[in-house]
């Protein structure tokens, strides 16, 4: 079974938020809510600085506290690519998954259910890339099967130095940031 993940090259990313805008229009994410977002970290003292920009979203973790804590099974791991999804009609809006996510990747949609990045599974199942990946003007994002050693994402992970987010939270996140 495929295990979808993303590799994002922070050297190429300029933090333009195109991924965020594309996600909004593709998925009709309501105004004031984000399924993905940009985090900028600056270290150092002017003019000797280091700046890293990350396009962040749900990490579609291998170890999913959000799915584990869901009392109804609404949060689940999808058959295709082990993508973490929420079945809106099963969600009671208890917000346990929001609290359980160390990345704060989830939110309550104005209609009441827990919502988050889907890796654009509706596009991926048609053979397209997620909207954020497809739109990126810097081509800094790659998407694919982490279990396939020949995939772009697998190759990038072995060939470039990279890190994941908050590995100490024990979630085994599937988004890798190249540095």
């Amino acid at each position: 079974m495929a295990r979808f993940g993303m590799v994002i090259d922070t050297r190429k990313c300029v933090g333009c938020m195109d991924c965020v805008v594309a996600c909004k229009t593709e998925n009709n994410v309501p105004e004031g809510y984000n399924r993905d977002w940009i985090v900028t970290t600056v270290n150092g003292k002017y003019p000797t600085l280091n700046l890293e920009i990350q396009s962040q979203r749900c990490n579609h973790c291998d170890n999913t506290p959000c799915v584990a804590c869901c009392p109804t099974g609404a949060s689940h791991i999808h058959d295709v690519g082990a993508v973490v999804l929420v079945e809106h009609n099963m969600c009671i809006g208890c917000k346990a998954c929001l609290a359980a996510c160390p990345y704060d990747a989830r939110f309550i949609h104005p209609e009441g259910y827990a919502d988050k990045c889907t890796f654009c599974i509706h596009r991926v199942e048609k053979g397209e890339l997620p909207a954020c990946v497809a739109v990126c003007p810097t081509h800094c994002m790659s998407f694919g099967d982490l279990d396939d050693p020949e995939s772009d994402v697998s190759r990038l992970i072995v060939s470039r130095k990279n890190h994941q987010l908050l590995t100490e939270a024990g979630t085994s996140p599937r988004i890798y940031y190249l540095v």
């Binding site: 090259d9 050297r11 190429k12 300029v14 933090g15 333009c16 600056v42 002017y46 003019p47 600085l49 280091n50 700046l51 890293e52 920009i53 003007p137 810097t138 081509h139 800094c140």
Partner: peptide, 30 residues
């Protein structure tokens, strides 16, 4: 658009980037 796309490509190809700016811009970080 085209310039940013090409800029990212230049970064990927390890072009030497020199940035002159009173502000540490995003480009400066590259």
């Amino acid at each position: 658009n085209s310039q940013v796309q090409e800029f990212a490509e230049a970064v990927q190809k390890d072009a030497v980037i020199i940035v002159v700016d009173p502000r540490f811009s995003v480009a400066a970080s590259k």
